[in-house]
């Protein structure tokens, strides 16, 4: 009689579990996609920060080169040493990029399977504690229970907990991700505008960081030629050749650095698309395609390039 009751209870619990797990879950693709999106945000925002750093460093180098070639004539005046961007201008951008990273990492934490795993660990501990309780002599005297009943109860608690967690996510995540579509898109647009474009062969159409960096490299070439002209009589052939070799290297670096800034703009575009896809997946339970992987690989490659540029300084 008692066994039949337990079997009936187990069947009922199984049905309830299937119903609970089938209703109100956000797509598993979102669980997997959000951490990938968070990684992509970190890389794209770090690369955007590096774009500002590279321009600032090159500006500093050009100022130093200019001081060197003009030293005989002008000497040195500390007031001529300036930054390209005022610290507060840069700070506003860095703060927003950090806020975007926090949004992405919190989104990843909330939607990751880690929370469910953490919950499972707790219910497992609860199961062990209940099991220990039912085996005490005092409990045996107070109530008639069994390990099977305990397992059913703990399984039900686990399923209920999963359902509550998933339900909360399903209720709030699509709305939150939707609210952030605008800010993520506008941030990317503003950053792309900041990065700008280089001048064409007529000197037209340049603006932003790409224009600035292009001109800084051109200035570096001008100062390097002036340095060689001023000192060529005092240089031995090897030192002179080494200084001259820097000229074509600067021309190549100018192109490569500009391409890196251009690709940073592209990864920002892809980030907006990825965030839009995340919303589609959260709403429709559709699977996210592997765009995230491509975005991360590209952003990592750019990060490597920025690191190499900065280590050259």
């Amino acid at each position: 009689m008692r066994n039949r009751h337990i079997r009936h209870l187990a069947r009922q619990t199984g049905t309830v579990l299937l119903l609970l797990l089938g209703v109100g879950c956000i797509s598993p693709a979102v669980h997997r996609g959000v951490p990938a999106f968070a990684d992509a945000v970190v890389l794209a925002t770090e690369n955007s920060k590096s774009a500002f750093t590279v321009v600032e460093q090159r500006y500093e180098d050009v100022q130093a080169a200019k001081i060197v070639v003009n030293y005989e004539k002008n000497g040195f005046n500390p007031n001529t040493v300036t930054r390209f961007l005022e610290p507060e201008e840069l700070e506003t951008r860095l703060t927003l990029l950090d806020a975007l990273q926090r949004y992405a990492s919190t989104l990843a934490e909330v939607s990751s399977d880690q929370k469910l795993d953490e919950f499972d660990d707790k219910t497992r501990a609860l199961g062990t504690a209940v099991q220990a309780l039912t085996t005490t002599t005092a409990f045996q005297k107070l109530a008639n229970s069994s390990g099977t009943n305990t397992n059913i109860a703990v399984t039900a608690v686990t399923a209920l907990g999963h359902w509550f967690i998933e339900r909360k996510r399903q209720q709030h995540l699509p709305e939150l991700i939707e609210q952030m579509q605008g800010p993520v898109r506008t941030t990317a647009e503003l950053l792309r505008a900041d990065i700008g474009s280089p001048p064409d062969s007529q000197g037209h159409g340049g603006h932003g960081l790409r224009d600035q960096l292009w001109n800084e490299y051109t200035q570096a070439l001008v100062q390097q030629i002036a340095f060689i002209d001023q000192n060529k009589e005092h240089m031995d052939p090897i030192s002179r050749a080494a200084e001259i070799r820097k000229l074509p290297a600067l021309v190549r670096q100018r192109s490569v650095a500009d391409q890196t800034l251009r690709q940073t703009q592209s990864t920002l575009n892809e980030l907006v698309d990825a965030h839009a896809e995340l919303l589609v997946a959260a709403k429709s339970k559709a699977s996210l395609h592997s765009a995230f992987d491509g975005l991360i690989v590209e952003a990592q490659r750019l990060k490597g390039f920025y690191d190499s540029l900065q280590s050259q300084e």
Binding site: F84, L85, E86, E88, E89, T92, R93, T95, L96, A99, L100, R102, Y103, T106, L176, Q179, M180, G182, P183, T186, T187, L190, A193, D194, G196, H207, G208, L209, D211, Q212
Partner: peptide, 23 residues
């Protein structure tokens, strides 16, 4: 170029608030 970047600083600052609310 500085002035061009500066013209967007206010927009960046506004966005920070929106991102903070969502977070």
């Amino acid at each position: 170029n500085r002035a061009d970047l500066k013209s967007r600083t206010e927009d960046f600052a506004e966005l920070k608030g929106q991102v903070a609310i969502a977070t």
